[in-house]
Amino acid sequence: MKEKTMNLSNAFKSFLAFCDRWKAVIIPLLIAVAAILPQLGFSTYIIRLMCNILIYTSVGMALNLLVGYTGLVSLGNVAFFCIGAYTSAILTANCGWNFFATLPIVALTASLGGVMVGLPTLRLSGPFLSITALGFAEVIRLIAMNFMSLTNGPLGIRSIPRPNLFGLELNLFNKGFYYALLVLVLLITLFIYLLTNSKYGRALRAIKNDEIAAGLMGIRTGSYKVMAFVICSALSGIVGAFYASMIQYIEPNSFTQDNSILTLSVVVVGGMGTLRGPYLGAIILVLLPELLRGAEGLRFVIYGLALVLMMRFRPQGILGWKSPLPYKLPSPPRDAGKR
């Protein structure tokens, strides 16, 4: 039995190594498949599911920057999602703005929230940070519930318009919304890729591995952590705006703790600190409950089980796997040896 599992994990490892070697072919292939998929004549229900997967992939991507790369486990990511959704919904539904015009404002308001959570983290560590974020999310939800004149309280905001690009409405029927989300996911992925392979990303990883050592190396850990929070919250806010526009009706109870936990599960199941992780995590965690329809409670039991089992048997996540290829150091400046 033991040998069999060893074989399996070896096969899985060599499969991943194969993917890593051929990634220049495989990644464009996967993008092409994702682009062609909606044209195969699926029902709106399936398209909606695929949109859900993309939404949780991109918000998982944003949270991954905090949890996976910086090692700050935030249990209140839904706060930024909520701020983004409400900002965009109020501006489009009540003030008649174009959806895309709201996105900069959304990023701004959500990152304000990020600063508010990020600043206390300078003094907090580990679990205390998680709890502060959770508390912040709950306070945001209470504000949305009670600030009647702005958010319409528990009644929520109705008939939020779909994004409109040069007169073309992007909705689920013409699949425009799906493509908008696909572009969003790819942009976020590219952004995180460039970020984590820069000096900034290396600083974040140093903070994750040993914060004191990172500080001694001259990394200003405080400002880097706040920046990580700001980027994560701005991206989550933008995804939240897309979410509001997809379901067209938001109320405070769409943004409970369950949502934060689901996002965290997406990151943990897929693989913390990897770019491919959130994709697989979102596909598994969005599709699984749909396959198990009928038992509403069961779905959250499965999220819980997924977290417990992953932590016990594969804490790095399903795709959390390091490339055996040597780490590419940034090329030294031309005149390095001359002085």
């Binding site: 409670g297 039991v301 417990v308």
Partner: peptide, 30 residues
């Protein structure tokens, strides 16, 4: 306990307790 045996990091313990609370609460719902 299995996590303590493996000497996992604190984040893993934290996420495990979150998972356990979801299992207990939603089994009650079921």
């Amino acid at each position: 306990k299995p996590l303590r045996k493996k000497n996992s990091d604190k984040v893993a313990n934290l996420i495990t307790t979150v998972g356990a609370s979801y299992i207990i609460q939603n089994l009650m719902v079921m």
